[in-house]
Design a protein around this nucleic acid. Sequence first.
DNA 1: ATATCGATCATTGTATACGCTTTTCGGCCC
DNA 2: GGGCCGAAAAGCGTATACAATGATCGATAT
Lengths: 246, 246
Amino acid sequence: MNQRQFVAGDKSGDGGGRPGKNGDGPKRHEAIYQSISDAIIEHRLKPGARLREDALAEVFGISRTGIRKILQRLALEQLVTLTPRRGASVTRPTADEAKDVFDARLMVECGLMPEIARRITAEDLVALRDMAQRERQALKSGEQSTAIRLSADFHTRLASISGNATLADFVERLCSRSSLILAVYGNAGHLGCESHDHDDLIGYLEAGNGERAEAFMGRHLKAIEASLSIHVEEDEAPDLFEIFSG
Amino acid sequence: MNQRQFVAGDKSGDGGGRPGKNGDGPKRHEAIYQSISDAIIEHRLKPGARLREDALAEVFGISRTGIRKILQRLALEQLVTLTPRRGASVTRPTADEAKDVFDARLMVECGLMPEIARRITAEDLVALRDMAQRERQALKSGEQSTAIRLSADFHTRLASISGNATLADFVERLCSRSSLILAVYGNAGHLGCESHDHDDLIGYLEAGNGERAEAFMGRHLKAIEASLSIHVEEDEAPDLFEIFSG
DNA sequence: ATATCGATCATTGTATACGCTTTTCGGCCC
DNA sequence: GGGCCGAAAAGCGTATACAATGATCGATAT
């Protein structure tokens, strides 16, 4: 699927962006937000990539005002970094941030498991299995972007079963950031979740065994974190003295 | 009802808002954000209060553009609610949201306790004791706003000791929202944390007893939640049939 | 030839202008 | 007298214009 999901035809329909043409504003903005967010999560926009307001405005056929709003939202979710007077760029997570994110996931996603095991329905199980299967398939056929997206969606969907919207939202953000972390510190070929892991987890949940699911999720997340190659590359302000004093 | 806590003298300094006068922009925006955020957390702006962009723009001496940016940030933190075409108002949390927020606090704040007990320093203890004492004093002298603010600050500061910026940030948001919840469901006179609770908690942490601190925090939060009077007032779309069919 | 300084250019920050929607108030009809 | 409809006003959504700042490239001097 090509990623031209933003409808470029819509802007030409009004004869050149007549101002004041209101109406489907909120929906369009949400769609643009999703487009950019997806592109980042799927690594089609890589960490460090600059996001110029003019360019985005032209691409999506709205003015810079709307783009800025979307960029600010993405910045609050820490998917993009807003540098004063320099503009927006895709966030390049530090090693510390990566550790924080995975520690947070460990605490929250594991803590949620018992409640999820209690509340999970047959419908949920069907949806989760479908996602897990599609993820495995994507992984096998080399569609990395799709696999990454499905993996994040799996964890997010799981959290939403808990019924706690606040925590589910938090997990969703953490998964988005994890995707960025994988882009920077992940080894090619071994990206994130082992596919059968998710299937195993579904099994524990179907059996209503929250404690095993919790323990398994813990190992699962620790395995992902362990698979990262966190070379503490201090790109900015290298210690020249130490480098040249040997 | 006019709150003049903002510095109005600063805006008159440039002779009437000359456009393009740049320079201290970011700092000023942050200050305005803090002003509004504080007013909400301290219950000086009550849930449901409308926040008109024009009025705020005039009050703070910047244009609506900047105000909108700040309002959107507050909306993402769920302190204000943005209704399309209707503008912004202070969020009135639902009973469900209140439950979610306290469940989240229970999980995260308790889960953080062992690590906090491990990392807490003498300096932290001094700061925490100071806050707890000031909170008790404010409570005694009837300064509700100050007490609420200090209570939220206490929990936030505590979380930051864990060293996990992501989770600390999450706790900060949860505390802000808790303040809103107290404004809607709290009983007057018995607001939030019992003051000596915080002192007891500090004691456990100083002793390095993370497990007792965790258990105590659990009771503490449950006590706050239990003190709420959550009458499930379904203001919007009341079920008239049920009401009049008896 | 290279380094530094200056000018132009590219890009963001902020304000303002204008259209559209919603609300409210007044008049009219029932 | 009360309710409904219409018009005016108020307030939000979006685009555009302008200014300031940081970056880049070129010229000049050493």
